[in-house]
Amino acid sequence: MSDATPTEAHPEAKLLRLTLNGRSWLGAVEQHALLLDVIRYQAGLTGTKRGCDMGTCGCCAVQINGEPRLSCLTLAHDCEGAEIRTIEGVQSGPLLSALQDAWVATGASQCGFCSPGFIMVGEALLEEKPKPTEREVREAIAGNLCRCTGYVKIVEAFMVASGQAEPGQDAVRRNAKGDSESD
């Protein structure tokens, strides 16, 4: 589509500037392009996944200026000048982030398709609340769907990453909404 000739029905691509994982990125982007498509197909960062494409599953979550957002519901040109962080920008050099490390240690990934979205939402949560309660974790990830794990290992990973549990401790209750405080 990007080489289509501009017509009344197909407007010309416009220049878009982003800071993508700390580096500046510049490209000609279709006016109707989604941030997700720019990240995946123009910047070539395929860690961000297209899941439901309707805002339900959270697989496409990235951080825009530090806030978790869904790139499938974000117009690329709305991000002019913004700082975008994707899953590729989470680790520092060869080192995984604490949450990624815990993800591996607890087995929070099975097929792995949803993991980037969870981690982008999760990194934002841990930045805001370094020691979240189980309930706060469950609320923060309410917009992310995982069809493999049943969420227990995922919540465990947050508890391990925030230093509140050790891997393999079965720190998370398996049948509750996480409402250890009164409702």
Partner: peptide
């Protein structure tokens, strides 16, 4: 809706 959608 969900927390990410309330950001939007």
């Amino acid at each position: 809706s969900s927390p990410p959608l309330r950001q939007h």
